[in-house]
């Protein structure tokens, strides 16, 4: 696709701009910002990826993955500000997710150990891990806040913090994983997953595209479980002090 042809796709930006203006939705500014940002960010990523793929240097691959983890951590930690040390807890989780998934994929030679595979797959899995951490933290802080009485009840009957918060912890882990599992039940029926669509448009054999998509789906399941459970088990102890009291505000 040439840049002239690509620029024709700006029509897709003009349509919402026009509608927003006529219906006074007030979304013009955000639409323009979103358009400009996506053009700049994706172009940069495109050129960076091209460079990394050409050099095939392990240093650049690691650097890119580090950047992904840092960006994802900074984004997710906003939801857990009240939890002590949440930044490194999320970072550690993302690192473990990356090491475990790539360890399996590369260790068992499921995908070739090249930047072309490692980086996009890492991006999808780390991104999913970030979303899961956010979903978990949102749910967990809300559950703890609304069930303080029940937590105090269990503590007052001689329960440990772990026993007192077990219900809220498992509920939140479950709730945060449900969207990942549910979305995979209908996958392919309505919407073709982004990665698969991209590959097919790029000229890949659809069956091969499906194989990669299946790999990603399975990877997402592991990622989801690992992320929620790790963030959960790293977070809950900070809600209590050494006298087994639940702290005032979460």
């Amino acid at each position: 696709m040439s840049y002239t042809t690509l620029s024709l796709t700006l029509i897709f930006v003009l349509i919402p701009l026009f509608l927003s203006k006529t219906l006074k939705l007030g979304l013009e500014k955000d639409t323009i910002i979103a358009t400009v940002r996506s053009i700049i960010q994706l172009l940069i990523v495109g050129y960076v990826l091209k460079f990394v793929f050409e050099t095939e240097s392990i240093v650049y691959i690691l650097l890119m993955i580090t950047l992904m983890i840092v960006a994802a951590t900074l984004n997710a930690r906003k939801k857990g500000k009240a939890i002590k040390g949440i930044t490194w807890k999320i970072a550690l989780t993302l690192i473990v997710v990356e090491v475990v998934t790539q360890g399996i994929l590369l260790g068992l030679h499921i995908v070739p150990a090249t930047a072309q595979y490692i980086i996009p797959i890492s991006g999808m899995l780390i991104g999913n891990s970030m979303v899961l951490s956010i979903l978990f933290l949102n749910r967990f802080t809300a559950e703890v806040e609304s069930s303080r009485d029940q937590i105090e009840l269990i503590l007052s009957l001689g329960g440990t913090p772990k026993q007192a918060i077990h219900k809220q912890l498992t509920n939140s882990i479950k709730a945060s994983m449900i969207p990942t599992i549910e979305s995979q039940k209908t996958i392919g029926l309505v919407q073709l997953p982004g990665m698969m669509s991209g590959q097919i448009i790029g000229g890949a054999d659809p069956v091969q595209a499906v194989q990669f998509q299946i790999l990603i789906i399975f990877g997402l399941l592991t990622t989801a479980a690992l992320s929620s459970i790790m963030v959960g088990f790293l977070s809950y102890p900070t809600l209590f002090n050494e006298r087994m009291q639940i702290l005032k505000s979460v």
Binding site: D149, E152, L153, L155, S156, L157, G158, G159, T160, R243, M244, Q245
Partner: peptide
């Protein structure tokens, strides 16, 4: 120890 204490000093909330 907190859990022992709370078993000996019961509370009806």
């Amino acid at each position: 120890e907190p859990t022992t204490l709370r078993r000996n000093v019961g509370i009806v909330l």
